[in-house]
């Protein structure tokens, strides 16, 4: 016992020393705790809270953007994933952070839905927007061998065969609302099948277990390219640049609201305006860099830039829209 203790201690001290050396050699020290200067913002590394798990679409988008934004901001940006509560845990923490610009939060469409769904009191008014980066519309996608090629034919078929199974990413999710809207506007009866996220719903569609999904083009891109699925229409004013051949719903003769997922950056609501402006400039520029745009294109994600003011207005509209829809659809 005594001997092993000595042996172990020796090992421990040596390894501790190695770690000390290793720690010293990592170049920057984060011990810079100067939080006074607004003028020389940013004077220390910035933290970006991503309220989603590492490795998902939201996370990879954030990390790709950060990689390109660091050189415009002049400081490193650390990504911190905070999961839980469909994103509300991370976002709440972001909203309650010190409003000094050193904590930035990624937010997504659910922020304008939480309150209406009764999931969290958090809304977009707890934040000050920096910029909107990404927007992907809902897209009505069906198996490639389905007996309909247009929205019109789909509606006609659904009227003859009520109860078509339409997969969504969970009750109350943005893709569920999209499907409900299509059903309501077209006057067809659909059987909504909830899955744990968009990917399992797409898998079920490829396997022929559901008849359609209303998720973003990014989620179905692989299967469109492989020829397993076809998209009938997208729920936006303009065609998606991911799938430019696919018409919008209004082109296809059905007026539906624009529904889609989006991701943007925000800071706590009391953050000074000049700091917001600095961040806005850095991230907007970063989103235009080739490394970021090619990442988004390869991943099938759409880029949609909106400045701080436009983003605020956009979230206001979303908030109104979802409030009305969730009430009409009786989802909460």
């Amino acid at each position: 016992m005594k001997n092993s203790m000595k042996k172990f201690l020796g090992l421990f001290i040596v390894s501790t020393l190695i770690f000390v050396l290793a720690a010293c050699s990592t170049k920057e020290s984060s011990g810079n705790t100067d939080n006074s200067g607004d003028k020389d913002y940013p004077s220390k590394p910035v933290t970006l809270i991503v309220p989603a798990a590492a490795g998902g679409g939201t996370d990879t988008t954030a990390r790709a953007l950060v990689a390109s934004a660091e050189k415009f901001l002049g400081k490193s940006i650390g990504v911190v994933n905070k999961t839980g509560g469909s994103g509300s845990v991370g976002m709440t923490e972001g909203a309650n952070a010190k409003p000094d610009g050193y904590t930035v939060s990624m937010v997504f469409v659910e922020l304008t839905m939480f309150e209406h769904l009764g999931l969290s009191p958090l809304t977009h008014n707890d934040f000050k927007p920096i910029a909107l980066i990404n927007l992907d519309p809902a897209a009505l996608t069906v198996p490639a061998d389905a007996p309909y090629d247009t929205v019109e034919e789909f509606i006609a078929y659904a009227k003859e065969n009520p109860g078509l199974k339409i997969g969504n990413a969970g009750t109350g999710s943005i893709w569920h609302i999209a499907a409900e809207i299509v059903g309501a506007e077209a006057g067809i009866e659909l059987n909504h099948v909830p899955f744990e996220g968009a990917a399992p719903a797409v898998t079920a569609l490829v396997g022929g277990h559901v008849d359609a999904v209303t998720v973003s083009p990014a989620e179905v891109k692989t299967q469109l390219d492989a020829g397993n699925l076809k998209t009938l229409a997208v729920m936006s004013d303009e065609r998606s640049n991911i799938i430019p051949d696919v018409p919008t719903f209004s082109e296809a003769g059905l007026e539906v609201s624009n529904i889609g997922t989006w991701r943007g950056l925000t800071v706590p609501k009391d953050t000074p305006d000049d700091i917001v402006a600095t961040l806005e400039a850095a991230f907007m520029k970063a989103a235009e860099q080739e490394e970021f745009t090619s990442f988004m294109e390869n991943s099938g994600l759409g880029i949609q830039l909106k400045s701080s003011n436009e983003f605020q207005q956009f979230m206001d509209e979303n908030y109104e829209l979802f409030g009305k829809m969730i009430k009409d659809l009786d989802l909460h």
Partner: peptide, 21 residues
Amino acid sequence: TLGIPGDAVTAVLLGALMVQG
């Protein structure tokens, strides 16, 4: 073979493959 990720790890790998084109 199908581009279908069966779990969380393969979902990340799918993203990695797509980024590589």
